[in-house]
């Protein structure tokens, strides 16, 4: 990068002037950006999805912190929340926001438990198809298994230097109205999800970044109850 900068600076002294140097800089940057995320060929895509699926099967538990950033263009503002996530196979999930609000969402034993402040609520997943879909999507997104849920999404894989990116486009009409795309970024070495980016039809996005990811560490059963 330093060499490139020096090269561009040297170009600025040529008769092209600063404008020519700036144009060339943009050219190099755009080439660099295009090279940073290459679309996978169909064969590469099938291979990557197979590898990610295999890695997902090895995931027994996941624990991490997360930072969620929601862009609100109408407000010219962002809402940043932080929390912690715990996952255990086959579909137990604890999603807890700690700042700026206290909110817990737990999926366990065919029930969804929600706690906000002192209020608690439990919903039987089996009684609601909507919740069944939510559970399937959340568990699938956290592990990456949603890449094989082809009836819900069309998938396009991109290959970057240190990551694989899956761009999911919803097929369901209702989901399409809510989201343009959902992008999952996978760590290239561990093949686990590190970032989820959901872009709404309005263009606003919710980005969830996972940090301090621990895989297959013991998790107490108490983690999946509100008690």
């Amino acid at each position: 990068m330093k060499l490139l900068t020096k090269y561009i600076q040297s170009l600025c002294h040529l008769p092209l002037g600063r404008l020519g140097g700036a144009f060339l800089l943009c050219f190099f940057v755009s080439c660099g950006t295009a090279a940073a995320q290459q679309p996978a060929t169909p064969e590469q895509q099938a291979q990557l999805i197979s590898e990610i699926n295999a890695a997902a099967k090895d995931i027994q538990t996941l624990q991490c912190d997360f930072t969620q950033t929601k862009t609100l263009s109408i407000m010219n503002d962002k809402m940043v929340s932080q929390g912690a996530m715990t996952f255990a196979q086959p579909a137990k999930l604890r999603w807890r926001y700690t700042t700026p609000y206290d909110y817990t969402f737990i999926i366990s034993d065919d029930k969804v438990h929600i706690a906000k402040g002192s209020k608690r609520n439990s919903i039987d997943i089996k009684s609601s198809q909507v919740f069944q879909e939510i559970v399937r999507l959340m568990a699938g997104s956290v592990t990456g298994r949603c890449l094989t849920q082809t009836k819900d999404f069309s998938v396009k894989m991109l290959i970057a230097e240190k990551s694989y990116i899956a761009v999911l486009t919803p097929k369901d009409k209702q989901l399409k109205k809510m989201f343009q795309t959902i992008r999952l970024t996978f760590d290239r070495a561990r093949k686990i999800v590190t970032t989820v980016e959901m872009t709404e039809a309005t263009g606003d996005a919710t980005v969830i970044e996972f940090q301090h990811i621990q895989q297959n560490k013991p998790v107490s059963a108490k983690a999946f109850s509100l008690d």
Binding site: Q68, K70, L72, I74, M75, M79, S81, Y97, Y101, Y103, F105, K116, M178, M198, E200, T202, D204, T206
Partner: peptide, 11 residues
Amino acid sequence: VGSVVNEFGIR
């Protein structure tokens, strides 16, 4: 101007 979103950021 205002916006109401759920805790997951869904508007």
